[in-house]
Write a protein that binds this DNA or RNA. Structure first.
Length: 520
DNA sequence: GGTGCCGGGAA
DNA sequence: TTCCCGGCACC
């Protein structure tokens, strides 16, 4: 796999056709061993200003040097069938490919110049970036010295490492995509240029990709339509620059390694989220808009026309609209699981119903995945200092969990006058995402000074807003504790996870012992 | 009736 | 020791 990739992407080791030393016109084959560079004009960095000299290991074992013109001549001579063609074609992409193919030139330096320019301009083309990275590494290794075979194996290892890094970093959530400032793990390439990473470029978003495998993958119903994926996968690649970027990366790495091995290398333009039945929507972050569309092109068009007031099509886009929308992933599986299995989440979900000023960043994705798209127009994006995704999290959670079935039946008892003060008390467990469960507090029962509140469910209409605060005062039964351990009043595994998720209980609960997870 | 969990038994 | 369950107290 990697070997194949190396062969396809590197001119080193490629078999080429070189002019016959005898001058009879019949080209001979050789293997490129090294690439030297001769600067004819140092002041210019244009492609034509540099001339590359290729050290070619000929069939007879001799080493000869050829200029790229000579090789190009040989290449053109046998272009239709030579392996060099495929190598060249595989190692290039997009516009640079066409330029290279037209001239028959295979100077990796020139190609790299073009690619770097493209990367700066395009920014989101992952393959361009990865190829650029590979070629930069190759440049470091072999730009001016002959590279023996041993070095090439080392280079191959480096490529593997690079590929692994790319694979790993690709698993980071696209939601960490943040506007233009990104972390560069090195200064070797600068694609966080002024235009930002998402400048739509027609030649890169549509024309530069091969269609060798995309149709089959795109047939997955949970993936966006092909235009969307062609346009939307690029943000997914952006975090790769961070290398060890933040985000929920871990669990998906194996799958990426398993199934992305080939597809990534061949520019598979599909975001690899279908394992979790991801459905990616795009939400407009423009203030008071919140429009959600299913395609990146659509949301871009929406922003461009509605908010930016541009009537021209994508050709005149400068990519600014990319900063005004975000992706929201609708994980159908996780939504179903989250609503059915009551998997534990942060206790901060029990925060009071009015959206607190400080949102819950760690729950953004959960909130977004729980939020149905049509609910997005009920929230109002606040263009404050918060991240786009965190803006809607509290209200969304509130909406979602208010509808939870458990809330309708669970007892809600609120201490008469201490409900507010108890919000600062520390609970003894980690509650679940359903806020309706009763809570036993670690604070002593004297907090409630004898007036143990009877579990009254009808406390007026105003209490409906407080149903997300489920507070059950613990009666001072500790004083009446007998030989038998006082029964815990808090949530137990049985309550939290339910009978259907008994495997999620703690061991003690499974064995009908005192709960060890939610101790009182 | 539901729930927590003690006590005891089986493997 | 692990696992399971009858049964009791509590709600």
């Amino acid at each position: 796999m990697h070997t194949r990739r190396l062969v396809k992407r590197s001119i080193l080791g490629s078999r080429i056709y070189a002019p016959s030393p005898t001058g009879d016109g019949a080209p001979v084959t050789g293997v490129v061993q090294a690439v030297k560079q001769e600067n004819r004009d140092v002041s210019s960095t244009a492609a034509g200003a540099r001339r590359s000299v290729y050290t070619v290991l000929m069939q007879d074992g001799s080493l000869k040097e050829f200029t790229e013109e000579e090789i190009a001549a040989g290449f053109n001579h046998c272009a239709a069938k030579g392996p060099l063609k495929s190598s060249l074609k595989s190692s290039s992409n997009g516009s640079s490919e066409s330029q290279k193919a037209e001239g028959g030139s295979l100077s990796p330096e020139a190609a790299e110049e073009l690619r770097l320019a493209d990367v700066k301009r395009i920014g989101r083309d992952p393959d361009t970036r990865s190829v650029s990275l590979l070629e930069q590494k190759r440049k470091v290794v072999s730009s001016s010295i002959d590279v023996p075979h041993a070095r090439r194996s080392e280079e191959e290892d480096m490529d593997k490492v690079t590929a692994a890094m790319v694979l790993t970093s690709l698993s980071t959530s696209p939601l960490v995509r943040s506007p233009p400032v990104k972390v560069n793990e090195s200064g070797s390439w600068k694609d966080n240029g002024s235009a930002g990473p998402f400048t739509p470029s027609s030649n890169s978003s549509s024309g530069g990709y091969w269609s060798w495998s995309a149709p089959s993958d795109q047939s997955n119903p949970s993936t966006p339509s092909p235009p969307l994926s062609a346009d939307s996968f690029k943000p997914f690649r952006v975090p790769s620059l961070g290398g060890v970027g933040p985000g929920p990366a871990g669990p998906e790495d194996p799958s990426l390694d398993d199934q992305d091995g080939s597809s990534l290398l061949f520019d598979e333009p599909i975001p690899r989220k279908r394992k979790n039945s991801m459905k990616v929507m795009f939400k407009c972050l423009w203030k008071n808009c919140g429009k959600v569309l299913s395609t990146a092109a659509g949301i871009q068009r929406h922003i461009r026309t509605i908010h930016l007031g541009r009537n021209c099509d994508s050709d005149c886009s400068d990519g600014e609209e990319d900063f005004y929308y975000t992706e929201i992933k609708l994980n159908t599986d996780s939504v179903a699981d989250g609503l059915s299995s009551l998997s534990p989440v942060s206790p901060s979900l029990l925060s009071p119903p009015p959206p607190p000023p400080s949102p819950l960043p760690s729950l953004n994705q959960l909130a977004d995945s729980h939020r149905p798209p049509q609910s997005s127009d009920t929230k109002e994006p606040q263009a404050g200092g918060t991240t786009p995704l965190s803006r809607s999290a509290p209200s969304a959670l509130y909406l979602i969990h208010t509808d939870h079935a458990y809330q309708a039946t669970a007892p809600v008892s609120i201490p008469s006058n201490s409900s507010n003060s108890t919000s600062s008390a520390s609970t003894s467990f980690t509650p679940t995402n359903s806020s309706s469960f009763s809570i036993s507090w670690q604070s002593p029962p004297v907090t409630f000074t004898g007036s143990t509140v009877s579990p009254s469910k009808s406390q007026g209409f105003g209490e409906q807003r407080s149903q997300t605060i489920a507070v059950l005062s613990s009666p001072p039964r500790a004083t009446t504790a007998l030989s038998r351990k006082v029964r815990g009043e808090g949530k137990k595994c049985r309550k939290v996870y339910g009978m259907e998720n008994r495997d999620m209980w703690c061991t003690a609960c499974r064995w009908k012992k005192a709960c060890q997870r939610f101790t009182d």
